[in-house]
Design a protein around this nucleic acid. Sequence first.
DNA 1: AGCACGCCGACT
DNA 2: GTCGGCGTGCTC
Length: 743
Amino acid sequence: MIKGHETAPILRVAVPVPLYGGFDYLDIDETGRTPVGSRVLVRFGRRRLVGIVIEHADDSDVPAARLRAIEKVLDDTPVLDDELLGLLRWAARYYHHPLGEALATALPVALRRAKADQTPHRHRGWQQVDPAPADEDDLLARAPRQRELLAAIRAVSHPTAHSHLLARFGNAQAPLKALQERGLIEPVELPGALERGGAGSAPTLGAGSAPTLGADQQQAVDHLCGLDAAFHPVLLEGVTGSGKTEVYFRHMARMLAAGRQVLFLAPEIGLTPQLIERLRARFDAAIGVLHSQRSEGERADVWRAARAGDADIVIGTRSAVFTPLPRLGLIIVDEEHDGSYKQQDGFRYHARDVALRRAQQCGVPIVLGSATPALESLHNANQKRFAHLKLPKRATGAALPPIRVIDIRSRPLLGGLSDPMLGHIERHLTAGNQVMIFINRRGYAPALSCHDCGWIAPCTRCDAPLTLHGGGARLQCHHCGAAEAAPPRCPSCGAKELIALGAGTERVAGALRSRFPDVRIARFDRDSVARKGRLESQLADVASGATQLLVGTQMLAKGHDFARLTCVGVLDVDGGLFSADFRAAEHMAQLVTQVAGRAGRADLAGEVWLQTRHPEHPLLHRLLAGGYNAFASAALSERRDAALPPFGHLALLRAEAHDLQSPQEFLTQAAATINVDADIACWGPVPAPMQRRAGRYRAHLLLHATRRARLHPALDHWQRVLGELPGARRVRWSIDVDPQDLL
DNA sequence: AGCACGCCGACT
DNA sequence: GTCGGCGTGCTC
């Protein structure tokens, strides 16, 4: 073939701006082409931005005179391989988000900056000194924390990462230094961000200390191990304590032995040190951990190690779904129903759904695990799109506790607690057992009100009351973060009697303290465990039995098993029954089922009590009578009747502005561009349930399609025209595909 | 989103 | 007379 004309070396580059489509640049590579997936530094208008090469082109629609050359290629090897770039292109299209921003979201923060430096960070670690000094016991007699740390360091034969110790023990700086000075441990430099699991014992993958399986577990493992290396989506529905993790581990061991990488996703709250510890203890493999407390340098190092194929297992939260894994063989999504898998701003992807797409694209099996699967996943299983494996029994043989209600209509509440609830608590405490009280509100009370005129302390920037904190001394907005001191008298009428309305964790804990003064009580919410290591030490006190009574928010619902916990109380289920959000009942049922899973053991029967003003509510009734499965089938038929997900398909167009009218005007214009028919409808525009938040007025337009195939063309159309609407400049707008909540 | 350009009000 | 408000246009 004869070259008819000179072909210009043109690169299509995605830059992190809210503009759809790529931008063309001239390549500066003399010898070949800068590979697709590379990071490049480009001039963009007057700015310099880090973009990603997404395509090679031979010519451009842009006049040659206006094309600029890229300034610099930032990496020797592309940061994104074809597989990951393909996944992100799909995700950007599916979620109707500009590709450049989607790519930037997927990259570790350190790689979003224009630094070519790729040398891995140095990682500090500790190892024990051999031989230990003879007077060790005397040295550490009065230093329990040092003993604890030393034991952890000695538990494994290889050095322990400093960051790992901090994540597990909180601020361990001082005791580590003391141990070093006493000649018991010494600092070492670790090669990378990966942790080596496997206690240094046999190199057999996954063989070490594997517990024997129950019949259901064995069946699930047999099914999973019988799958060939292809896309096989599996929903693993296992009640709390049924040993889901052991089933994952068996499947993982097989994949690791075959030389494949495993991606393990967990919600932030489920990615506990215990889980990571179990992984480390079990697998003699290189493990990359991506949790929120990791530094950006460490995250970038895990990313690079995964891309190089050095990491065998990558475990992380939502964004870990975008880790490059050239040998990917298996994806596990633990607690797949968890709402934290959906990103709630910017690039609003759902990590579970992206993971499904990724597994399909790579042709690998994927396991979605939960005790309370999302209705979407149950529907997929019912439709035979997913295999459905069940672990209906607890591994210990313990029965699931009965769940019963306390009708609190016309009953006085003491700090949110009814008399019967206090009676149950007392009964279990007296028996020497532990009790957990669950309330989905942090702070002292959700509002401060004037007893005389009814005034309620409002946030100045949001349409919401301020929450009382600090025993009633401070006011705080849970939506915008504003904080102030509680006023001494009513600003509206001057009356001195201001009263706290309702109860949060702080008030409940206080009421329990005065009722049970001799019982040790621990509070678990974002405020009380904010300090690093505090959560771990509080949990340790529960595990040792020192703490008998636990009060907390949903962070108590998952992951931790306490030997003597026999009674769980849920104080506010009604919020889930009457919310504007169509998923509220589903979340309530998941929460109740999850917390119920905390109670009782083989030898100690447990019970669960729910306070409600609506004991006859049909969905609550189904949940109590038939468990989560009965609830789910009732909820699914309600969804079918209302054509809501998974039977209908939704996208939300959000708009916000500093003034009241602009969002409404823009959304009205947007609605007018859709040709409504039997299969596709626009609902709204309507003001958001909380119209003003952080000083911005917000409104929504809901797009509803009976078939998925009709939703996306309509969104493609919106993507093209919305920016051109006259009202678009006056608002901040975004498209949310498969919105998690309509708030 | 940024960042510039451009045309109308209250200040040294 | 200038500093600065935010409307409008553009980014290969």
